[in-house]
Amino acid sequence: MDIYLLEAVINGLLLGGVLALLALGLNLIFGVIDVVWIAYADLVMCGMYAVYWLHVAGWPLWAASLAAIAGVAVLGVLVHVLIIAPVLRAPPINQLLATGGLLFFLQSFTTLLFGTDFRNIGVRLPIIEMGDIFISFARLLAFGFALVGAVALYVFLKRTYLGVAIRAISQDREIMGLMGVDQRRIYLVTSLIGGALAGLGGCLLVLQYDVHPFLGNTFGPLIFMICVLGGLGNMIGGFVASFIISQIISIGGYYYSTEWAYVLAFTLFIVLMFIRPRGILAR
């Protein structure tokens, strides 16, 4: 096998891990609450800023990361209470406008707070060399956490009482309400977990990317496309779609060009939406 092609495949896998982690939280929230958080990637950006500033203030990276995850988890709850809950029964377009407004708010607010500069945390993780192939440890870490996050979430949803309640709500929120499940509590827990996943994404991305107020624009559309491709709310579908898209971007970019790789990815997305409009793994 062409050694450079192998490197492209590995890069695709590692990129897929990052995208899968981001898609996981967005899918969870949509699956349970039935609202698309358009501003999800901007919560990730908030997590990156939290890690950056805490680390700059002298916190060790692990402590800054834990604090960022907790902070963004709380932010997720606040988003639900202040923005989502009031429009929960409103038409979907109103919900989209509300979370779209949140996106602009977060971008503008962080611009006012931190300026437009690109900020780098300055942490250099080692690089793994295998002959001519180099693998970034930061990306490998993100990949590992994405897998662990996905498995942990799966176990939580399958094996715990709260997880079963969350799945039940996502399947039939009206009936579960009648059966005594506290919907509001489930929504808050879901928002907390979704926010924590965004915080975790921020902790991992800050090792690979500069943070700036508009970082969400880089990942937001791609994550949304992945979630739709996998079937909105379908976490396994989103996970698989992340790796399909990332491999197209990476291998397509290797054989053709970076621009064409995105054209290919979006073309595949459109074609699959015609064939399987509810997502590739929809039953």
Binding site: A8, N11, G252, G253, Y254
Partner: peptide
């Protein structure tokens, strides 16, 4: 000679091509 979007989230395949 290759172009890319300034907002691209990943340029690793471009780097791999340059290595080649």
């Amino acid at each position: 000679k290759e172009g890319y979007s300034a907002a691209a989230p990943d340029l690793s395949s471009l780097v791999t091509k340059l290595k080649r």
